[in-house]
Design a protein around this nucleic acid. Sequence first.
DNA 1: ATGTAAGCGAGACGGTACGTCACGTCTTCAC
DNA 2: GTGAAGACGTGACGTACCGTCTCGCTTACAT
Lengths: 189, 189, 189, 189
Amino acid sequence: VLRGDITAALRRALIEELAAVGYGRMSVEAVARRAGVAKTAVYRRWGSKPEMVLAIVAEVAERKLSLPDAGSLRADVQVVLRIMAQALEHPLAAQIIPDLLAEAGRDPKIAEALQVALRTAQDEVGGRLIRRAIARGELRADANPELAVDLVVGPVYWRLAVSRRPLPPDQVGALADAVVAALVAGAPA
Amino acid sequence: VLRGDITAALRRALIEELAAVGYGRMSVEAVARRAGVAKTAVYRRWGSKPEMVLAIVAEVAERKLSLPDAGSLRADVQVVLRIMAQALEHPLAAQIIPDLLAEAGRDPKIAEALQVALRTAQDEVGGRLIRRAIARGELRADANPELAVDLVVGPVYWRLAVSRRPLPPDQVGALADAVVAALVAGAPA
Amino acid sequence: VLRGDITAALRRALIEELAAVGYGRMSVEAVARRAGVAKTAVYRRWGSKPEMVLAIVAEVAERKLSLPDAGSLRADVQVVLRIMAQALEHPLAAQIIPDLLAEAGRDPKIAEALQVALRTAQDEVGGRLIRRAIARGELRADANPELAVDLVVGPVYWRLAVSRRPLPPDQVGALADAVVAALVAGAPA
Amino acid sequence: VLRGDITAALRRALIEELAAVGYGRMSVEAVARRAGVAKTAVYRRWGSKPEMVLAIVAEVAERKLSLPDAGSLRADVQVVLRIMAQALEHPLAAQIIPDLLAEAGRDPKIAEALQVALRTAQDEVGGRLIRRAIARGELRADANPELAVDLVVGPVYWRLAVSRRPLPPDQVGALADAVVAALVAGAPA
DNA sequence: ATGTAAGCGAGACGGTACGTCACGTCTTCAC
DNA sequence: GTGAAGACGTGACGTACCGTCTCGCTTACAT
């Protein structure tokens, strides 16, 4: 019977190590060391570094983020922006997410695991959010949901995760306004 | 006198290796091997792995991209989008850029080197492009150039480099329209 | 716990490599390669090339060679000659011993290690053997044991290890006779 | 036209380097450095390390040592011992000779070069010296010249070059006496 | 209660890469 | 054409980690 406290310590250590050195440099040995545990304890659970990362990342990523109807397109967009901002402002996530996204370009397994997580946002935003706006008459029926996702998610990701400048809370409104305008304009393909 | 053909082969090999395995896993030995050159030839030029990467990346990144006035805000935005799309659709760049941006979160040296390159885009877009639009009367004078950069650059980066879906050329126009609308709406801070 | 079979393989490989290329050219890598073992396995045991050579050579050299009383000076001398001939006719020893003796002129550590081995012969021959002969009345009491060692050991070493000509077994008797005569004559300093 | 002063400096440097580090470790680079000369200067003259060593060693070794008739076997032996002692007490020779003799076991070229030098001693001692003694009636006609060489040369070589103990001049007489006795006794094969 | 299985730590194993050094070869310049 | 300078490939250095594997120890469950 695998000891639960060790599993938990390893989970925690993996996240920290991943943030500290990145996927490429990360080693099972270092994770075990950080968790204060022998290497065998890791291999008994996951078998290899990618398996371990995938299992734990998937675990974290699959926490459903429900996106309740906020009443208007602008309010919905603001919710999405706030959720993303909150996630990307967590230091560990800010390190790990771009790292795994970069690695996804090489390792299809990782790409797939992340797609599962992304699909959530993808579907939520591009799917539900846009469909709701169409239903409300805020967007035209032929609005392109794909482009919509890029317009909503792109700016905030670029700001926080790529150019790593903070996003003052009082600018979220302005950003939302701009994004909504973009959505309205972007539709009529 | 260091032989130029060897330097060139190493430069090329570094780029390829960086794309193939990422910054974290990249090794000087592998680069030398790929270039068909002895390890000593590398250390005669750069002294260590990060130095080598920085020097070559900076070299590539500093290629000035001039942004001539295209006549209107929409045309200017379209030019920026096309330049970015062209860059990010190159397979090597699509692998290397997100990788280095992720690494920049850990290594200040890399961050700095990339900022030099980013600042170009930053200044070109957020600075010149927006100022021109203001001068033309297309944007209000109090438009926020910081937000503007995020709005222009974010969606196309997300699309091509993060979620890795292609951007059909015929959608660039729609995207530009949406971005312009966002800029116009996003201004009145 | 270091694996004994690997230690043994390394010991064997060191001896062979030493004979093949000599102390000066010998490399740890080549020894490990010859033993079919990783370089780390060597450094886990000895730490450096000279340490390794010293440890193994000392180990081999310290095998006590007991010299039982053969009954007469001539018989004793013959035993010594036979032992030396047997040792020096082994191809590995014939390569290694002169090599290390030459190196001993430069490296005091090696000199010391060899002295331990030589002292055995030295004491056995110059000490015990001569003293026995004096006790038997075969040599005068003021016989010089130092010279005696040279007279017994020198000719056979020169023959086999320096000028590398074989010593036919049927000539050992004649050589012993000559040496005994020399000992008898050499004493009266 | 190769400059003579450089050739001489290289010759001198080779000898010193050979004594200092031994044949195995000796490098052309170090010799050139010691001579204060570029590597090219060496390779223009000799082409490789073994060639260089062989040429210079042969040059030194071929200096004829004439062995005039000293009047008696004992006097002849004493002359040989004194010549050898003088040679082996020179610090450079004491390092180089055993080193090359050891290397001769591996490299036939070196062995051959040394045999030329050894043959001199061989012939002088085993040949001429013994034949003279037979002619004088000091040795029987069937004396074995091969054994004789070993008996004369072995002890002094062992003493000075192998066990590296000094040979006090006043012991040369005693050693000569012993050797003569050995020769006389060793003959009647 | 005891036996047995499995988790656990420790650590040796074969690898790979590190950054350095020294070397023999070869090319390029200055006299 | 000679010698100096130095870049080149090679190969070894001794170190540091890494993933794999084999060990005893000890813990917990099933008899």
